[in-house]
Design a protein around this nucleic acid. Structure first.
Lengths: 208, 208
DNA sequence: TAATTATAAACTGACCGTTGGTCTGTAAAA
DNA sequence: TTTTACAGACCAACGGTCAGTTTATAATTA
């Protein structure tokens, strides 16, 4: 009765199931058996495709980061956006994959980061590694508007600060606090990049 | 033969042993039995003093953060330091307790943060919670030199960025990279706080 | 006051449930 | 027949529990 599936299909099934569970319950609290139960599979098949639970997490993070980088590259290539808009769009879209945004429209998905420290840390490290260079390009290609001595390093600092502070699971900011942090964040970016104050201000309305 | 000890002494023994192991091996990879073996104690005594392994981590973090806050308050009260020097001293002293610095002089202690995500995350969260207000006071008390709309939030962003980027376990920066990040970090702070460029520059030499 | 007993505090170690991971084997596909 | 995809019993290790033992302290008695 058991039907053998294409390896890639099975692997994707497992990855998708794992990702959903990791986000819902957290990495640590998600059992390998939990992942297998989603499609009624047995222990063996998991370790046929992956050599450890951690490898699955790494694969998921890689997928998410690749997505984010692709998205960022599209933004960079978009001729209808100004450089500041690009910076803003990439920074603010962080931590949310396209799929996650779609999902979020349906049900309220909380990225349970408190129980997800390992995953959160790894994904932040990878984000910085792969996303910072792409963003740094924007700054380097428009030295008229931006004045930064170390674009990549500066952008990395932005990513680290933003991803951490605005994480929904770590701090439960009130709406007011969130707004204050958002403004402070944007002002920090404006000042650091040397763009006039208010450059991003009209974009800030999204935080209302 | 078994000697009963003062509860506080025993508890400190366990906390100290745990802290050392958590730093050396990481929280996840440190066994409760490992902690007990340091002083040859049995399972029961651990759960006599703590109700879980996580509680021990929380206690250790609290101790570290309290230390850091005390230290920060002393710096704030120091009349021989200028406000920028205070900001600098607190930001750069982060993540290293006095004891850890002493230890580091003896043997090369690596805070194995890669295997320590949970602890690192929690301690960063607590740092921001308790340290940011203290630092914000410095900014508020010297509005002539500093111009920031949201002192506490801004400082929190600094802490998050700095603690993450300069973590020894997460990124293995070369000496050059480290210097670049340090300069970028300082420039970001200078620009964001509205102090003239080079305000911290003479302090930067420490990174050589 | 010294010896005895009662009570609580500090500690032991066998035990349990769960989990990540292994291994031998089997059914389906080629 | 060989290879690929899968099943599921099994294992070691870990966090945590618990009934019981030893040590210190207070209360009682002689």
């Amino acid at each position: 009765m058991r039907r053998h599936k294409e390896p890639e299909v099975r692997k994707s099934e497992l990855l998708d199931a794992a990702q959903k569970l990791f986000i819902e319950k957290g990495y640590a609290k998600t059992t390998v058996t939990d992942i297998l139960n989603v499609h009624g599979l047995s222990k063996g098949v998991f370790y046929y495709y992956f050599k450890s639970k951690e490898e699955v997490m790494d694969a998921i993070i890689q997928r998410m980061v690749d997505d984010a980088v692709d998205n960022a590259k599209k933004i960079v290539a978009n001729p209808d956006m100004t450089p500041p808009q690009k910076i803003y769009a990439i920074l603010m879209g962080q931590g949310q994959t396209e799929e996650m945004i779609k999902d979020r429209e349906d049900m309220a998905h909380e990225f349970h980061t408190a129980d997800n420290a390992e995953m959160h840390q790894k994904s932040l490290v990878q984000s910085i590694k792969y996303l910072a260079p792409v963003m740094a390009e924007i700054l380097q290609q428009d030295t008229d508007t931006f004045s930064t001595d170390f674009p990549q390093e500066t952008v990395a600092l932005f990513l680290a600060a933003g991803q951490f502070i605005f994480d929904e699971g770590l701090f439960q900011w009130s709406e007011e606090e969130n707004t204050r942090y958002a403004i402070a964040f944007i002002q920090m970016i404006e000042k650091t990049l040397g763009v006039p104050s208010g450059y991003f201000s009209d974009l800030t309305k999204k935080f209302a």
